[in-house]
Design a protein around this nucleic acid. Structure first.
Lengths: 218, 218, 218, 218
DNA sequence: GATGAATGAGTCTTCATTCAT
DNA sequence: GATGAATGAAGACTCATTCAT
């Protein structure tokens, strides 16, 4: 398509300024969309709102994204990718299961603190399965589940978790538990204002997931 | 008119044949809407679809509900009410905490099996929807959380759960865990086709919530 | 239903209650419609509003009137008829022109005081010519103009008004002048709270119409 | 493209070709709406009709006006403004009262001749519409009354009109008289086809308003 | 690249009117 | 006569997307 136009060597750099600006605009759109989607939801967000938030004309959005869906998909895949990356990273570290879980929980809470808008979107839009199943790569979402499931599976094999545990179901439970707490942050019913408060929550979540409500050896 | 046929039944039933038909139509609309919302989502559902599903003219929908939102709100409040009712019922029974949790989990799974459409809506359209949370009574939703929180609080006082447990946070975790499993049923990534399979899930969830991933005394 | 309870007497009278009741209901609808039309305008008034105001089911309205237009037409023709009647009555009396005008003006002001709703409708709806011309008998309206025009014409022949006066145009002016004052009453920009105030207005109008703004021989 | 043709004209015109086109489209919509409203009335006019008349797509109307009401309001405020302007202009001229009235009457008749559609709307949709009066600035309408009232008041102080005249009431009468004649033009019951005919009407109106039906010194 | 004017399909909602009971 | 459930045509309005400049 544009391969011929690329030219040699410096071409990449010559293209740079333009593509740099381009990339910046693209990023600005994504950032704006993240904010607007978080505030109004995917359906409630108008392309015009996103453009306005990004400080550009709304027609320009269509130079960077095929359509509105595409924007959500981009937010989703690009951010989720790094998330998945982290999951795999944690999964491949030679750490005890409890420590892996600790990092996982910490990671989730951290993201929620730093990028609440992004987390809001993840939580609110991604679970709209009927839409997702049709238009996006639900597989990509499931990869995250798989990563956690492998983690649990492996831990079970090593005897770090109960032998009769169903790894798949356990994954859903771990994921759901974390997600609801994050939702609490997002909708403001769980208000936390200090790093300590968040740290405390992490402890609680970790303890509860590992040893349950009853669990004493915490 | 047919008053004679009605006889001296309960006063409630005598509440006019017309109202009766009316009530039936209303129910038919709610049932149709539940199905359509579950299939297409609130935004994707057209009032015309609901009317068609209910086998009525679409203007009639507006005799029973102010607008589309109102239909969702009705599904929500009328079903959620009975749900809350059950929570309180379980909460007031003189049962050990573990048993209460068992019933709770069973209740959730049962509803999902019997009324998957309703559960789909609850999960997709209501529990995550800022729109809904903004326009309707978020308080009503939170009552469910409160009921569970009281349950946990009480159990803590009795020493049935860990002393340092944060009841509020624990509630979110319990709720979130259950919700995600149900979401798995809803979107079909967790396929269960027998009563045994569901029963097994209940055991798993209960065990995990009570004694955690590690938990041995299960 | 309750016919048997009514007892015997003559057939006419036995039918009387029914047609009497009928006539009453019809009147109640007209009265209600007058109020509602005055408040909300013809377009803004819903048949259901009228029925509610009349205290009946809205389907019943269609037993008495073909449709909404028909109600307005009835108000119009039945009330206007008596109005026209008065105009002709005044026109046929052997009175000096000034006296006729006085009675005319008094009549208008009186109606406005006693039946402001009716007057509001007359003023607001009847001039919507495009609708009127199509659906109603504009001729009936014009009869009123004709009556006044004849009055002026005759006065001119007798030398009671300026010889070069165009009776038709003068009619419009007289009519318009009165109508705007009444409109002032209706919309509340001309507030009058005593019989004297209204009487004073009548004097002013009469004086102005007869001898003009300048006019001294008043 | 046409920038070169524009040259170094006034800054106002340089205000971008795009805005220019925009302004033209807006004007085209207003003109179309004026025609359609006059023909079918505000309620009877469909936005689609207006768009078609303007030769544009349906949705474009909503780029320029919030809704149908807004279009009527724009017609009203933009035209009425110039109308009020003229009233004040006449009011501030050092002219005898009779001359002022002459100009006023002439002005009304002229507008009716030149922009019958506009006048139709003013009369049918605005000056009588409770809807309009409620939702918009009735004050703006009343300013016109005030202007005339001041004119009469001043004339009374100078002894140009009867000493016992109520200026406010007189204003309503003058206004109403004129309005009804214009209504006659609008609904076609007063057909005038020559400049002379209109001029003659002006004479009649002026004479009648100044010296009344009886008035001889005319 | 950038702009925003233009397009028009898609839906909700209203409400006069009909009709079974 | 009376009721109000049922119908469905009609129309306002939104907004994603295209495209000329």
């Amino acid at each position: 398509m544009n391969a011929g136009a690329e030219g040699a060597e410096s071409a990449e750099q010559r293209r740079a300024p333009r593509s740099k600006r381009s990339a910046e605009t693209r990023e600005r759109i994504l950032a704006a969309a993240t904010e607007v989607f978080a505030r109004s939801g995917f359906h409630g967000a108008r392309v015009a709102d996103i453009a306005e938030q990004a400080g550009i004309a709304y027609g320009l959005v269509y130079h960077y994204f095929r359509n509105k869906d595409d924007i959500l998909a981009a937010i989703f895949s690009e951010r989720w990718a790094q998330y998945i990356g982290y999951l795999h990273e944690v999964g491949s570290m030679p750490l005890p299961f409890a420590e892996r879980m600790r990092r996982l929980v910490h990671f989730w809470v951290e993201i929620s603190r730093r990028e609440p808008d992004l987390m809001t979107i993840m939580i609110n839009e991604i679970s709209r399965s009927y839409e997702f199943l049709e238009s996006h790569d639900i597989g990509t979402v499931l990869v995250a589940f798989d990563a956690i499931e492998s983690m649990i599976q492996e831990a079970r094999d090593k005897g770090e978790v109960a032998r009769d545990l169903d790894p798949q179901l356990a994954t859903y439970i771990v994921f759901g538990a974390a997600e609801m707490v994050l939702t609490g942050y997002v909708i403001g019913t769980l208000q936390r204002d200090s790093a300590e408060a968040f740290a405390h929550d992490e402890e609680q979540m970790l303890g509860l997931l590992l040893t349950g409500l009853v669990g004493e050896p915490r």
